[in-house]
Amino acid sequence: MADEAGGLVIDPMHQFQIHPLFGEGPLMWYTPTNQTLWLGITVVVISLLMLIGSAPRKVIPGRTQSIAELLYSFIHDMVEEVTGHEGAKFFPYLMVLFTFIVTSNLLGLLPGSFSPTSHIAVTAVLAVMVFLTVTLVGFYKKGIGFLGMFWVSSAPLPLRPILALIELISYFVRPLSHSIRLGGNIMAGHAVIKVFAGFAGVMGIASVVPIAAIAAIYGLELLVAVVQAYVFTILTCVYLRDAVGEAHH
């Protein structure tokens, strides 16, 4: 639809295109794509950071070791604080989630890069994994008592079926909001930057204004990248608390 606009060509969605990395062939499930490349870069960056960071094992850490240890203790404290002692065995899982999301978000902010977390497919898989984990662990730990979460015993009896319905719906909306929040935030940020970049292309000397705006939005996006990773992880902790901890409803 940008074609109709004449000179102003803005296609903010083009950056999210997935295409095969080699050749033109059809996109099979195993075909390496540009997204595969950036997933691989994310994996390599995380592995290098964690391996180099944990290799020296010095009591007084260097820079890389500090980053790795900071990440470790940050997530560890979060899990301990929100999920309680019971949730500590999900720590590696949350560590993987947080490092993957934050690294992918930040790498996606590099000019010309591709952000896997801007794709609903990726965030949906992450969110559905969390949803399944919470549900399965909840039933495993509490048996049928896990359903007591939906039966708000502190409410008046006539209200309880209605509340149970609302709780049930909100429970099943969780993976949707969980995934759309992350994917939508990252997608929105990239699209906005792209729109401003499109303005900058046709405004001549006045394009300093959209370029300044891009710089400002870029700073905001750095914040959003980290905050959304944090939010995704802490919401996972909150959901896990429902499954392993005492019911708070």
């Binding site: 195993y30 794509t33 997933l39 691989g40 590696p92």
Partner: peptide, 23 residues
């Protein structure tokens, strides 16, 4: 399917690196 496959591969690699070596 492509995205999900490669994402799972990436997550498994990160998980192994984390739990077996780094953590």
């Amino acid at each position: 399917p492509n995205q999900v496959f490669w994402l799972l591969v990436a997550l498994v690699i990160i998980y192994i690196v984390m739990t077996k070596i780094a953590m």
